[in-house]
Design a protein around this nucleic acid. Structure first.
Lengths: 263, 263
DNA sequence: AGAAGGACCAGTGGTCCGTA
DNA sequence: AGAAGGACCAGTGGTCCGTA
């Protein structure tokens, strides 16, 4: 039985491919299935490399176009970026905290991270209400439109790349809070960084999917707070790869050991 | 009580706006609500006019890129474009036919139109099955991907603008086949063209929506064959406008005549 | 004049990679 | 080295308008 896709998570960077190529990939433990994905990825990268370097557009002034709509009430309940007006700092990085623990220093904790997901949900509900009033198409997910709305409403600390990056961590928090809490305590104790915690969140999620017929989409959709988030690509790929591994294991145990039972 | 939005359907081209501007608009019967939409539309048109004329790219040869995948079984059950190989004609135009009636001459009938919707559904199901097998995102609606798949599978007579154009006609056929059949017979008897029939399909649909709390999205979603189609913009707008009219009528009858009953 | 559909365009989902 | 997020890009939903 080859290394399964989950174990491959801890092997990133060990492939023959340049390290950069394998980032966020599911790993090659599954064999042919993942070669296809990896090949598509390579082609994409190549296309990109044919183009010039990224344009850099900086505008240090305020965007006056919608300044009037800004809402300066900062209901950022994490440590945020402090009170510096007009400094436009980044948010403080996350650290692994236990449930209930407040991050000290220029850091934000994981309860704060999960709180951001709840805030996005509130913004979605507002966007939905406006759409319904106007008789317009009503989003069922947290879309670009919702992120734009959040920004206009003053929640400049919410952005799409960040929220998408940690969706599966929030999923575990929603689907099995006990497991999520345990994982946080364990990773904190080991002194791991946020990236390691984030990686570690995949495994219990795939285990949940295994118990529910591998249908990660319906698992997301069945949970009221989770259903508004797109299933992350990598989580979907992991579930698929593991389902194939499980099926292969089952069928080989039938053809090898199963004979004794069947006849 | 001003002309309601549905009656306004038969008034297209009577507005003070240039005729072209009002095409596919809901009508101005509703007042302020529709002024906003019309204004947005005008701005859009203006933006477009600032740009140059459309580029014209013609390639009269075959697109060899995916010729190998072509499927020459023509299961077009309508009159289609006949057997001319490599002629690349358009489909014959639709005419208003009664249920069961086959169009004669270079025309296609409405049963054939509805059959195209069923074919799209079959193509969607195939795309969904492939996506599930591969563990990829699985579309729930007839998307660009499905139209592309249909074309590759040889159904070159299916295209997005056509299918979107008549979605609400198919909706009526799904939701109230009796009413749909009656409308077809009536419009045929009056010698109306397809455009007139298409316009006439809106009214009974809005009446259905009225009976179901004006929620056209949930009406579509509740029907297994209809749920795979996006609700057409104009139908959504008509339902919204009529809901507002109905609410206004109800509230004015409360404030005017309702007094007698309430006190 | 009525109709079919190639082609366009604004804004999407997805995430890379220059930045701090 | 680890992380936050501006910015990019391929492919979408929507439908106009040059064409037959």
């Amino acid at each position: 039985n080859p290394a399964n896709a989950l174990d491959a998570l801890s092997q990133e960077g060990l492939s023959e491919e340049p390290v950069q190529e394998e980032k966020e990939m599911v790993g090659s433990g599954g064999g042919a299935t993942w070669e296809v994905v990896a090949a598509a990825e390579r082609r994409k990268k190549q296309r990109r490399n044919l183009k010039g370097h990224r344009k850099v557009v900086m505008d240090n002034g305020r965007d006056d176009q919608e300044a009037a709509e800004d809402n300066d009430d900062d209901d950022n309940v994490g440590n945020g970026t402090g009170g510096g007006i007009g400094e436009r700092q980044r948010e403080h990085p996350f650290i692994v905290t236990e449930p209930g623990e407040v991050a000290r220093g220029k850091k934000n904790g994981l309860d704060y991270l999960f709180h951001l997901y709840e805030q996005c949900r509130d913004f979605l509900i507002q966007v939905q209400n406006i759409a319904k009033e106007r008789g317009e198409k009503c989003p069922t997910k947290v879309t670009n439109q919702v992120f734009r709305y959040a920004k206009k409403a003053g929640a400049s600390y919410i952005n799409k790349p960040k929220m998408r990056h940690y969706v599966h961590c929030y999923a575990l928090h929603c689907l099995d809070e006990e497991a999520s809490n345990g994982l946080r305590r364990a990773l904190k104790e080991r002194g791991e960084n946020v990236g390691a915690w984030r990686q570690a969140c995949y495994k219990p999620l795939v285990a949940i999917a295994a118990r529910q017929g591998w249908d990660i989409d319906s698992i997301f959709n069945a949970h009221p707070r989770l259903s508004i988030w797109y299933v992350p690509t990598k989580l979907r790929q992991l579930c698929h790869a593991e389902r194939n591994n499980a099926a292969a294991a089952a069928s080989s145990s039938v053809s090898a050991g199963g004979d004794h039972l069947a006849f």
